[in-house]
Amino acid sequence: MQDKRLMTVNELADYLAVKPAWIYNNHRALGIPSRKVGGSLRFRLSEVDRWLDRECPVAA
């Protein structure tokens, strides 16, 4: 079963090991899958993982 949990900007920043400001500044330009819930950005872990696999391939 896929993880349907929604993460906050801070949780995603921790997951990606970046600062929350990086998420805010780059989520649209990089196409990080997101949604607005009550005016706040949220990210589904399974969608972010798919995005990472597609957009950030493993270095050789």
Score class of each variant (00 low, 15 high):
30 L>M: 10
13 A>H: 04
15 Y>P: 00
36 K>I: 06
12 L>Q: 03
20 P>T: 10
38 G>S: 11
11 E>M: 11
40 S>T: 15
6 L>E: 06
23 I>A: 00
20 P>I: 05
44 R>D: 09
21 A>P: 00
27 H>D: 03
54 R>C: 04
53 D>Y: 13
49 D>C: 05
42 R>N: 07
35 R>N: 06
27 H>I: 07
43 F>N: 00
26 N>I: 04
7 M>G: 01
9 V>L: 10
29 A>P: 01
50 R>Y: 08
13 A>S: 11
60 A>Y: 10
39 G>F: 13
51 W>R: 02
39 G>H: 14
14 D>T: 13
56 C>A: 12
43 F>E: 02
56 C>W: 14
49 D>R: 04
5 R>L: 07
58 V>A: 13
31 G>R: 05
54 R>Q: 13
50 R>L: 07
26 N>H: 14
49 D>N: 12
30 L>D: 07
48 V>W: 03
40 S>A: 15
54 R>A: 12
4 K>N: 12
6 L>D: 05
8 T>M: 06
1 M>L: 07
18 V>G: 11
50 R>M: 07
36 K>M: 13
38 G>L: 10
54 R>F: 08
7 M>T: 01
53 D>A: 15
26 N>R: 15
49 D>P: 01
49 D>A: 07
11 E>W: 10
35 R>F: 03
38 G>K: 13
17 A>V: 11
5 R>T: 08
7 M>P: 01
32 I>R: 01
58 V>N: 08
39 G>R: 14
11 E>G: 09
45 L>P: 00
4 K>H: 10
3 D>Y: 01
48 V>L: 11
3 D>P: 00
36 K>T: 13
41 L>M: 08
44 R>S: 04
25 N>A: 14
58 V>W: 08
9 V>F: 02
45 L>V: 07
41 L>D: 01
30 L>Y: 09
33 P>N: 06
23 I>V: 14
2 Q>D: 10
13 A>Y: 03
16 L>G: 04
31 G>I: 01
26 N>Q: 14
22 W>Y: 08
38 G>Y: 11
40 S>C: 14
34 S>T: 03
55 E>D: 12
38 G>I: 11
11 E>C: 10
36 K>P: 01
55 E>P: 02
14 D>C: 11
40 S>W: 15
45 L>E: 12
12 L>N: 00
5 R>N: 06
44 R>G: 01
58 V>F: 12
19 K>E: 14
59 A>H: 12
51 W>C: 05
34 S>N: 12
16 L>C: 11
54 R>L: 12
